[in-house]
Design a protein around this nucleic acid. Structure first.
Length: 260
DNA sequence: ATGCCGGGCGAAGCCCGA
């Protein structure tokens, strides 16, 4: 089973690019972020025509996440538990059932947090605390769990082209990375690092400054696995093709293969 | 090099992303 995460930076602007990639990569499950549309505006017809069931948690203009699945989706949770006043659509979770397996999947759009001297940074850190608390609950079920998305976290210096450019950024600040390690240290497996040791593999390149052409990227899209899912992990990689095409997102998909 | 793209909103510039 192939599971991917892709921050599309507007599902409306990215529909052709996304459909092209779905047809060629044929993922079974896809976690999307930054839809930038309300539920009613999601292009259900185009996606369902490719054989996907859809769970959407949208929002006007900003954020918005979805899960696409070739298998049925059940028990859909919209929004990250832990703060009823949080209106940002950054989390959707669902149970995927195949004929001989059940796994829980979440699509995550973790807050960016910049500028760090505004309320945006504590919101990010608080959101990460809520994600850790919720994950702790989910892990008690001892089931296959995949937490996939745009974490807006550069885990180590290996994951960025120029540390100087990011040292004090909300994506790399030590407080951010500590929260990320706290989450992973619940017992999750970081898929990409479980399969690769080489540095300078990226999932995001800024639209500006010729970042794509110069390969000035960062790796911030991650798939974290419960032990039960990690036991089935056979591959993880980054698919750079969509980033090089017409009207690309600034992110490109990262995918895993699970022996399920 | 904290705004050089690109998207949304809405009809022009401004907010936002990472």
């Amino acid at each position: 089973m192939k599971i991917a995460t892709f921050n599309v930076n507007s599902i409306k602007a990215r529909l052709n690019n996304l459909v092209h990639w779905l047809e060629e990569a044929k993922p079974d499950i896809v976690c999307l972020q930054e839809l930038k549309c309300v539920d009613e505006a999601f292009p259900h017809e185009a996606i369902e025509a490719l054989g996907y069931n859809v769970a959407v948690h949208g929002q006007k203009t900003y954020n918005g996440v979805a899960i696409l699945s070739k298998f049925p989706l059940e028990d859909i949770t919209k929004g990250l538990p832990g703060d009823d006043s949080d209106e940002q659509a950054r989390y959707v979770e669902a149970v995927v059932s195949t004929k001989d397996a059940v796994l829980r999947v979440a699509s995550i759009y973790l807050p960016n947090g910049n500028p760090v001297d505004t309320e945006k940074y504590p919101y990010k850190l608080g959101w990460m605390d809520r994600l850790t608390a919720h994950t702790k609950e989910l892990l008690q079920a001892e089931e296959m769990l995949v937490l996939a998305g745009d974490y807006n976290v550069i885990r180590t210096a290996d994951d960025c082209y120029d540390l100087k450019a990011w040292a004090d950024d909300a994506l790399f600040k030590i407080e951010t990375r500590e929260k990320f390690y706290e989450l992973v240290n619940l017992g999750l497996t970081d898929s990409f690092r479980a399969c690769h040791t080489e540095p300078n593999r990226y999932s995001f390149w800024d639209y500006q400054r010729g970042s794509w052409q110069k390969d000035n990227g960062i790796l911030i899209d991650h798939l974290l696995l419960s032990p039960q899912a990690a036991d089935r992990l056979t591959a993880c990689d980054i698919d750079k093709a969509p980033r090089g095409r017409e009207k690309p997102s600034d992110h490109t998909p990262v995918w895993i293969e699970l022996d399920v």
